[in-house]
Design a protein around this nucleic acid. Structure first.
Lengths: 193, 193
DNA sequence: GCATAGATAGACAGACCTGTCTTACTACCG
DNA sequence: CGGTAGTAAGACAGGTCTGTCTATCTATGC
């Protein structure tokens, strides 16, 4: 039996919406398009998600969870803080070159929903803060807390900026220059290696 | 006579649209809202701009021109490359703290218009490339061309990332950490001062 | 067998979108 | 004074948006 179960539907809707939001943007993707592409009735969607806002928040949470899990798994293979940071940049490098790279969904969400009180804004900001926290905790093995904080902020900026440049058509240069700058910053602080 | 002349109307529409796009986003701002806020007839708007796309492109060009002129003027007061780069970061620091800071309009345009062939995407990408070129030419006074290129890319990334962080509510930390990182990168390359 | 819960297809409301068109008004120039 | 070009105000078309509702079908548990 390959019939989808009930809870599968919910996930299927999320994944379909994710693909569309990524490609077309949030405002530009209508509910009708989502249910058509997911091959699902409108009421089914509205049963699982009371509003489009709820769906968007869940899509962002779904995507953030997958990202976190991937980094968790990759982190096991690294020993030193430098390696752990390097692995994150590796992930971004591969992502930039993936077939359906369309930029950072969270950055796009922040761009489309300017109100900091909006749930979509908050869901997107959460992912950025989580990534920064992840890097800060890695760096705290090597440097005092305040330096780890400002260094992780700098690394996050490089990553965000690199994603934008990759978006503009230079994925190779973007990841190379970002990594180079990151290493220079780390060298200037924690005295790596 | 304080009556607006004909060409003033065009500029007034652009400035009104700019304020709305900045606050609400491109898709979320309707033509009706623009003409109401600008207190202008619909046909007047469509006479000056054949379509909303044209208006958006002009708004981006207007904003980019103002930005470039401000930097040109500020650049006169600086002597060394480090000072010139510092002045750019100063500008961003002030911008982050300005009353109606709503993030980077060009980054938002790139986010909302994913198609690289779309005129709005291209107008936005142009501004990013122009800023990078400006910094690269500054850096070429101090380092070989290839290093100036990758360094300017890194500085642009820091600026973009800092703008995002400022957007998320930490303008002080954003500009401070970005500047700190920029100085570390410059110190690692061109041997400043 | 039968009740219940979920899914389907699609009509529908009410609002909003871009862009066109009409009619009347105003200001300037010769 | 007369002609012209720009503007105002708003109706309008045709489409899209989110969200609600109904009526029918299907599958599962008891």
């Amino acid at each position: 039996m390959t019939e989808p179960t009930r809870t599968d539907k919910r996930r299927h809707i999320v994944e379909t919406a994710y693909a569309l939001f990524k490609r077309l943007g949030f405002h530009a993707t209508g509910i009708d398009r989502i249910i058509a592409e997911a091959d699902v009735a409108k009421m089914t969607m509205y049963r699982h998600f009371p509003s489009k806002d709820d769906l968007m928040v869940e899509v962002l949470a779904y995507r953030a969870g997958r990202f976190e899990r991937q980094l968790d798994r990759l982190a096991e293979q690294a020993a030193t803080p430098e390696q752990k940071i390097g692995i994150i940049f590796d992930w971004y490098g591969r992502w930039f070159h993936s077939a359906d790279f369309h930029g950072c969904l969270f950055a796009h969400a922040l761009a489309e929903f300017g109100d900091p009180a909006h749930p979509v804004f908050q869901a997107a900001a959460r992912q950025k803060n989580d990534l920064k926290r992840r890097m800060r905790m890695i760096l705290e093995e090597r440097m005092p807390a305040d330096e780890a904080d400002s260094t992780s902020a700098a690394l996050l900026m490089l990553i965000e900026g690199a994603t934008l440049m990759a978006r503009m058509g230079q994925p190779d240069l973007a990841i190379r220059d970002a990594r180079k700058a990151a290493m220079a910053i780390l060298a200037a602080r924690g005295r790596p290696q």
